[in-house]
Amino acid sequence: MITCIIIEDEPLAAEKLKGYIEKIDFLDLRATFNNGVSAISYLNRSKVDLIFLDICMDELDGMQLMAALMNLPKIIITSAESQYALLSYEYSVSDYLLKPFGFDRLIKAVNKVADEMKNQTIAEPSFVFVKTEYRTERIDLSQIQYIVGMKDYLSIVLENKAVMTLMSFSDILQLLPASKFSRVHKSYIVALDKIKHIERNRIHIGDERIPVSESHKTQFFNLLKAHKHTG
Protein backbone atom coordinates (compact mmCIF):
# COMPACT_ATOMS: atom_id res chain seq x y z
CA MET A 1 0.00 0.00 0.00
CA ILE A 2 1.36 3.43 -1.01
CA THR A 3 0.08 6.28 1.16
CA CYS A 4 -0.37 9.57 -0.66
CA ILE A 5 -1.78 13.09 -0.53
CA ILE A 6 -2.92 15.57 -3.19
CA ILE A 7 -1.77 19.21 -3.14
CA GLU A 8 -3.82 20.98 -5.81
CA ASP A 9 -5.49 24.41 -5.74
CA GLU A 10 -7.90 23.78 -8.64
CA PRO A 11 -11.01 22.03 -7.23
CA LEU A 12 -11.96 20.31 -10.50
CA ALA A 13 -8.42 19.04 -11.07
CA ALA A 14 -8.26 17.79 -7.47
CA GLU A 15 -11.59 15.93 -7.81
CA LYS A 16 -10.53 14.36 -11.11
CA LEU A 17 -7.22 13.20 -9.62
CA LYS A 18 -8.96 11.88 -6.51
CA GLY A 19 -11.29 9.85 -8.72
CA TYR A 20 -8.34 8.34 -10.57
CA ILE A 21 -6.56 7.47 -7.32
CA GLU A 22 -9.64 5.72 -5.93
CA LYS A 23 -9.49 3.31 -8.89
CA ILE A 24 -5.96 2.17 -7.98
CA ASP A 25 -6.14 -0.41 -5.21
CA PHE A 26 -2.56 -0.01 -3.98
CA LEU A 27 -2.91 3.75 -3.37
CA ASP A 28 -4.21 4.99 0.00
CA LEU A 29 -5.22 8.66 -0.25
CA ARG A 30 -4.80 10.23 3.19
CA ALA A 31 -5.71 13.88 2.52
CA THR A 32 -6.24 16.58 -0.13
CA PHE A 33 -4.98 20.16 0.26
CA ASN A 34 -5.69 23.26 -1.83
CA ASN A 35 -2.56 25.09 -0.67
CA GLY A 36 1.04 24.34 0.24
CA VAL A 37 0.92 25.94 3.69
CA SER A 38 -1.70 23.50 5.04
CA ALA A 39 0.13 20.62 3.39
CA ILE A 40 3.44 21.55 5.06
CA SER A 41 1.71 21.59 8.45
CA TYR A 42 0.32 18.10 7.79
CA LEU A 43 3.64 16.73 6.51
CA ASN A 44 5.47 18.01 9.58
CA ARG A 45 3.44 15.66 11.75
CA SER A 46 2.58 12.84 9.32
CA LYS A 47 4.58 10.77 6.87
CA VAL A 48 3.33 9.67 3.45
CA ASP A 49 4.99 7.74 0.63
CA LEU A 50 3.87 9.94 -2.28
CA ILE A 51 2.71 13.49 -3.03
CA PHE A 52 0.74 14.48 -6.12
CA LEU A 53 1.93 18.08 -6.33
CA ASP A 54 0.74 21.05 -8.36
CA ILE A 55 3.39 23.69 -9.09
CA CYS A 56 1.52 26.97 -9.46
CA MET A 57 -0.23 27.81 -6.19
CA ASP A 58 -0.64 30.95 -4.09
CA GLU A 59 1.33 31.54 -0.87
CA LEU A 60 3.61 28.50 -1.21
CA ASP A 61 4.08 26.98 -4.66
CA GLY A 62 5.17 23.44 -5.44
CA MET A 63 8.85 24.30 -5.93
CA GLN A 64 8.98 26.19 -2.62
CA LEU A 65 7.24 23.32 -0.86
CA MET A 66 9.80 20.78 -2.10
CA ALA A 67 12.61 23.10 -1.01
CA ALA A 68 11.05 23.48 2.45
CA LEU A 69 10.72 19.77 3.20
CA MET A 70 13.78 18.10 4.70
CA ASN A 71 12.80 14.50 3.89
CA LEU A 72 10.94 14.41 0.61
CA PRO A 73 8.65 11.48 -0.12
CA LYS A 74 8.13 10.40 -3.72
CA ILE A 75 6.77 13.25 -5.84
CA ILE A 76 4.59 13.19 -8.96
CA ILE A 77 4.16 16.69 -10.35
CA THR A 78 0.75 17.52 -11.83
CA SER A 79 0.98 20.85 -13.64
CA ALA A 80 -0.41 22.76 -16.60
CA GLU A 81 3.00 24.42 -17.03
CA SER A 82 5.84 22.59 -18.79
CA GLN A 83 8.61 25.10 -18.05
CA TYR A 84 9.22 23.77 -14.54
CA ALA A 85 9.90 20.19 -15.65
CA LEU A 86 13.70 20.42 -15.84
CA LEU A 87 14.01 22.33 -12.56
CA SER A 88 11.71 19.92 -10.74
CA TYR A 89 14.00 16.98 -11.47
CA GLU A 90 16.61 18.58 -9.21
CA TYR A 91 14.36 17.27 -6.45
CA SER A 92 14.39 13.74 -7.95
CA VAL A 93 10.69 13.78 -8.77
CA SER A 94 9.38 10.44 -10.00
CA ASP A 95 7.32 11.86 -12.86
CA TYR A 96 5.95 15.08 -14.32
CA LEU A 97 2.35 14.91 -15.58
CA LEU A 98 1.28 17.74 -17.85
CA LYS A 99 -2.40 18.68 -17.51
CA PRO A 100 -4.72 17.55 -18.85
CA PHE A 101 -3.60 13.95 -18.44
CA GLY A 102 -5.62 10.75 -18.54
CA PHE A 103 -5.87 7.73 -16.29
CA ASP A 104 -3.46 5.75 -18.47
CA ARG A 105 -0.72 8.35 -17.94
CA LEU A 106 -1.35 8.44 -14.20
CA ILE A 107 -1.19 4.65 -13.79
CA LYS A 108 2.12 4.64 -15.65
CA ALA A 109 3.49 7.23 -13.19
CA VAL A 110 2.30 5.43 -10.04
CA ASN A 111 3.61 2.10 -11.32
CA LYS A 112 6.97 3.80 -11.70
CA VAL A 113 6.78 4.94 -8.06
CA ALA A 114 5.83 1.42 -6.95
CA ASP A 115 8.85 0.00 -8.78
CA GLU A 116 11.14 2.63 -7.21
CA MET A 117 9.87 1.75 -3.74
CA LYS A 118 10.36 -1.98 -4.33
CA ASN A 119 13.95 -1.32 -5.37
CA GLN A 120 14.76 0.67 -2.25
CA THR A 121 16.99 -1.53 -0.11
CA ILE A 122 17.17 0.67 2.99
CA ALA A 123 15.96 -1.47 5.88
CA GLU A 124 13.86 0.00 8.65
CA PRO A 125 15.95 0.63 11.78
CA SER A 126 15.58 -1.66 14.78
CA PHE A 127 16.76 0.99 17.25
CA VAL A 128 17.24 4.75 17.65
CA PHE A 129 19.46 6.93 19.83
CA VAL A 130 17.91 9.69 21.96
CA LYS A 131 19.53 12.24 24.25
CA THR A 132 18.54 11.91 27.91
CA GLU A 133 19.97 14.44 30.38
CA TYR A 134 23.73 13.75 30.35
CA ARG A 135 23.93 10.80 27.98
CA THR A 136 22.71 9.43 24.65
CA GLU A 137 20.71 6.24 25.08
CA ARG A 138 19.92 3.48 22.63
CA ILE A 139 16.21 2.63 22.42
CA ASP A 140 15.16 -0.67 20.83
CA LEU A 141 12.03 0.05 18.78
CA SER A 142 10.53 -3.32 19.70
CA GLN A 143 10.49 -2.19 23.36
CA ILE A 144 8.50 1.03 22.78
CA GLN A 145 4.87 0.86 23.88
CA TYR A 146 3.91 4.49 23.46
CA ILE A 147 5.33 8.02 23.73
CA VAL A 148 3.63 10.74 25.74
CA GLY A 149 4.30 14.48 25.81
CA MET A 150 5.03 15.96 29.26
CA LYS A 151 5.43 19.74 28.99
CA ASP A 152 8.86 20.28 27.39
CA TYR A 153 9.76 16.58 27.43
CA LEU A 154 8.71 13.35 25.80
CA SER A 155 8.43 10.22 27.88
CA ILE A 156 9.25 7.12 25.83
CA VAL A 157 7.47 4.32 27.67
CA LEU A 158 9.23 0.99 27.22
CA GLU A 159 8.23 -2.44 28.47
CA ASN A 160 10.38 -2.12 31.60
CA LYS A 161 11.03 1.62 32.08
CA ALA A 162 10.39 5.14 30.74
CA VAL A 163 13.05 7.34 29.12
CA MET A 164 12.74 11.14 29.20
CA THR A 165 14.06 13.20 26.29
CA LEU A 166 13.89 16.85 25.22
CA MET A 167 13.01 15.91 21.62
CA SER A 168 9.87 17.27 19.96
CA PHE A 169 7.14 15.08 18.46
CA SER A 170 8.21 16.03 14.94
CA ASP A 171 11.83 15.08 15.73
CA ILE A 172 10.97 11.66 17.15
CA LEU A 173 8.57 10.91 14.29
CA GLN A 174 11.42 11.45 11.83
CA LEU A 175 13.26 8.56 13.53
CA LEU A 176 10.37 6.12 13.84
CA PRO A 177 9.18 3.84 11.00
CA ALA A 178 5.86 5.29 9.81
CA SER A 179 4.47 1.78 9.23
CA LYS A 180 4.89 0.84 12.92
CA PHE A 181 4.19 4.02 14.89
CA SER A 182 1.37 6.54 14.67
CA ARG A 183 0.59 9.84 16.33
CA VAL A 184 -2.97 9.52 17.63
CA HIS A 185 -3.27 12.67 19.75
CA LYS A 186 -1.35 15.92 20.25
CA SER A 187 0.23 14.24 23.30
CA TYR A 188 0.62 10.61 22.18
CA ILE A 189 2.40 8.34 19.69
CA VAL A 190 1.60 4.61 19.86
CA ALA A 191 3.35 1.46 18.67
CA LEU A 192 0.83 -0.43 16.55
CA ASP A 193 2.04 -3.86 17.62
CA LYS A 194 1.50 -3.02 21.30
CA ILE A 195 -2.20 -2.21 20.94
CA LYS A 196 -4.39 -4.76 22.78
CA HIS A 197 -7.68 -3.33 21.56
CA ILE A 198 -9.50 -0.08 20.75
CA GLU A 199 -12.77 0.83 22.40
CA ARG A 200 -14.71 4.09 21.99
CA ASN A 201 -11.70 5.90 20.51
CA ARG A 202 -9.51 4.74 23.40
CA ILE A 203 -6.42 2.66 22.66
CA HIS A 204 -5.59 0.06 25.30
CA ILE A 205 -1.86 -0.59 25.70
CA GLY A 206 -1.03 -2.39 28.93
CA ASP A 207 -2.86 -0.48 31.66
CA GLU A 208 -2.83 2.79 29.73
CA ARG A 209 -5.93 4.20 27.99
CA ILE A 210 -4.82 6.50 25.20
CA PRO A 211 -7.30 8.85 23.47
CA VAL A 212 -7.57 9.14 19.69
CA SER A 213 -8.22 12.78 18.78
CA GLU A 214 -10.47 13.87 15.91
CA SER A 215 -7.52 15.50 14.10
CA HIS A 216 -5.54 12.23 14.01
CA LYS A 217 -8.43 9.75 13.81
CA THR A 218 -8.62 9.30 10.02
CA GLN A 219 -4.87 8.94 9.57
CA PHE A 220 -4.59 6.43 12.43
CA PHE A 221 -7.40 4.16 11.28
CA ASN A 222 -6.16 4.28 7.68
CA LEU A 223 -2.75 3.15 8.94
CA LEU A 224 -4.38 0.32 10.91
CA LYS A 225 -6.23 -0.76 7.78
CA ALA A 226 -3.02 -0.71 5.71
CA HIS A 227 -1.20 -2.60 8.50
CA LYS A 228 -3.88 -5.27 8.48
CA HIS A 229 -3.63 -5.70 4.70
CA THR A 230 0.16 -6.08 4.79
CA GLY A 231 0.34 -8.11 8.00
Rank of each mutant, 00 (worst) to 15 (best):
95 D>E: 13
228 K>D: 10
58 D>P: 12
23 K>D: 09
120 Q>N: 14
20 Y>H: 02
210 I>V: 01
87 L>Y: 08
210 I>S: 00
190 V>G: 00
127 F>K: 00
65 L>H: 13
173 L>D: 07
98 L>M: 06
70 M>Q: 13
182 S>K: 03
189 I>E: 05
65 L>F: 15
201 N>R: 10
214 E>P: 05
160 N>W: 03
137 E>D: 09
178 A>T: 06
170 S>T: 12
213 S>Y: 04
166 L>P: 02
198 I>R: 01
114 A>V: 07
130 V>G: 01
9 D>F: 05
94 S>D: 05
69 L>P: 01
132 T>K: 11
16 K>H: 08
97 L>R: 04
144 I>R: 04
212 V>H: 07
114 A>E: 09
165 T>K: 03
108 K>L: 13
132 T>W: 03
36 G>I: 11
198 I>P: 00
190 V>M: 01
172 I>D: 12
102 G>H: 02
57 M>R: 09
115 D>F: 07
121 T>N: 14
109 A>W: 02
73 P>Y: 04
98 L>G: 06
167 M>G: 14
146 Y>D: 01
159 E>L: 15
93 V>G: 01
86 L>G: 08
100 P>S: 15
100 P>A: 13
167 M>T: 12
151 K>H: 10
22 E>P: 03
145 Q>E: 12
149 G>Y: 07
95 D>Y: 11
87 L>K: 14
170 S>I: 03
53 L>A: 09
91 Y>M: 02
227 H>A: 05
175 L>E: 00
175 L>R: 01
81 E>Q: 11
134 Y>S: 14
132 T>S: 12
62 G>D: 05
205 I>L: 00
111 N>T: 01
49 D>C: 14
31 A>C: 13
89 Y>P: 05
43 L>G: 04
2 I>T: 03
71 N>Q: 15
100 P>T: 14
133 E>G: 04
115 D>R: 10
13 A>C: 11
141 L>F: 06
71 N>H: 14
114 A>P: 02
82 S>R: 11
73 P>N: 06
149 G>F: 05
8 E>Q: 08
198 I>W: 02
177 P>H: 09
86 L>N: 12
199 E>H: 10
178 A>F: 01
33 F>M: 05
120 Q>H: 09
156 I>N: 11
18 K>W: 05
227 H>I: 00
96 Y>S: 04
133 E>W: 11
39 A>E: 10
67 A>R: 15
117 M>V: 07
64 Q>P: 08
73 P>K: 07
216 H>V: 00
147 I>S: 07
44 N>S: 13
209 R>P: 01
50 L>K: 06
178 A>I: 03
12 L>R: 08
38 S>P: 12
145 Q>H: 11
178 A>E: 06
87 L>V: 14
196 K>L: 06
179 S>H: 13
76 I>R: 02
76 I>F: 06
173 L>I: 04
94 S>H: 02
203 I>M: 07
223 L>Y: 12
18 K>F: 10
110 V>N: 07
118 K>T: 10
158 L>F: 10
156 I>K: 06
